[in-house]
Write a protein that binds this DNA or RNA. Sequence first.
RNA 1: GCCCCCAUCGUCUAGCGGCCUAGGACGUAGCCCUUUCAAGGCUAAAACACGGGUUCGAGUCCCGUUGGGGGCACCA
Length: 497
Amino acid sequence: MTVRTRFAPSPTGYLHIGGVWAALLAWMYARKHNGQFILRIEDTDTKRTIEGAQAKLMESLRWVGIDWDEGPDKGGPFGPYIQTARQPLYQKWADWLVENNHAYKCFATPDELAEMRQELEAKGDHSGYDRRYRDLSQSEVDALEAAGRPYVIRFKMPLDGETAVPDLLRGEVVFDNKQFTDYVILKSNGLPTYHLAHVIDDHFMEISHITRGVEWLNTAPIHVRLFEAFGWEMPVFVHLPVILNPNGKGKLSKRTQAFTQGDQEILVKADEFMEAGYMPEAVVNFLANIGWTFGDDREKFTMSEALERFDLADVSAAPAKLPYSKLDWLGNQYFKDLSDDLLVKKLYPYLQQHQIDISAETLLILSPVIKMRLKKLSDAVPQLAFLAETPPLPSTVEEITHKKMGPEAAATAYKKTIAFLEGLSAEQFEVDTIAAGMREIGAAVIDGGKPGPYLGTLRYVVTGQKVSPPLFESVVALGKDRVLARLVAAQKLIDSL
RNA sequence: GCCCCCAUCGUCUAGCGGCCUAGGACGUAGCCCUUUCAAGGCUAAAACACGGGUUCGAGUCCCGUUGGGGGCACCA
């Protein structure tokens, strides 16, 4: 059997990270087994469809490296891959069910339904439908139809007995048929509900494993019965656990907005991760650790390593809250592994997009020292702010002196430093030379000979930031003229005493 | 209300009856290194929800309780 999995989102909002996770597992399984991964758009709820959501969702999937073999944009042998474009198919099979006595036309009006619901509720029946149109005679049906009464098609669920849903992660889940009623499978506008649509699509698209959220488990008996009525072989059901909202309550939903918890930023939508500048490899690595374990106590791995070991059957059935702090850790791990050139390649366009004008050459100088400070590209912005704008100059003596480097020593230090830098040729204005020279000055100027305090205050003078990249790289990045100007200003402040 | 799913450190998890004095990771705390912030090194605190069974033996199997989650639409 070839493995064919799919991700079937409805374009009703933006894709959240839990959706990406579900897509990832399905995709991994298909790739692992050299099968196919299909993207199908479930847009039968036309009222909720949002313009542009489909494009956005495809962008997010591509960003994390999930590609599809068949889908709305690239076609395939079982298309179309957008449900509204498949309407005739659903109509045909809904009619087939009616003809074969598995379904029937229900002419209940919205008012009638509302009233019925109320009466049923009063009796403690929460099913919402009393099956009153289930057993009409053919002539009664014909008469209503002739009168132009709109109708839906409902599937005949068994009146008693049980329906077992085989689930890869939980074994057989058994439901009492009494809790079900006859569900609408084709709406009065001629479009199918999810129940009908996915059964037909998954069958004709030859899907081998249906992966979806547990929220579908309770309605899975309908799907089981539908497959049975059609006489089609059932795919394997894999009901994935929910991803819980990290703020504590409920599941992650499309409506959940990004927010901050403590000093941890909680992102929800897929494109927020992209926008923040996490490396997609890190995000995918992070997600693969949810509900699944690589083994050997390893948390960091490449996707191709993961594919060697992955199995849907090993996925945990327990719901999970995303460990965001681990994403940050992983994100940093991936940046540290990046070559300086590659980091510049990623960082440069990102900073450009965010109106921070720093040359690629400058970035290359900073690259080795900044990469271990990044979890995501956006972390570079405050670090590098001193290069983009003119940082405030020190205004108090306390800022440019140190308890181990009083005003007198500081005055000497700045004077020496200025002279040292002025004496450097353009070729000599590089990290190693500057480091050596400054350490020497620092050692001479500080009691005890440890240049630490000198370097620290100097770093503050040069960058104007309490937090910044290390001194030497920052000096080279800022450039001789600007550094000297700042040192001169500091010296003047000291001299004014 | 009814039905269904789930349950190991704060979080993600390993564990599929004896290898568990419950392992790893993130986070947290302390120490070291250090020009800030990081990164790195070392150390520490931290869990089998509870109660019954089954068994020579239970984190691991069964039942119940509790807790969390989900579902009961002409939404997916």
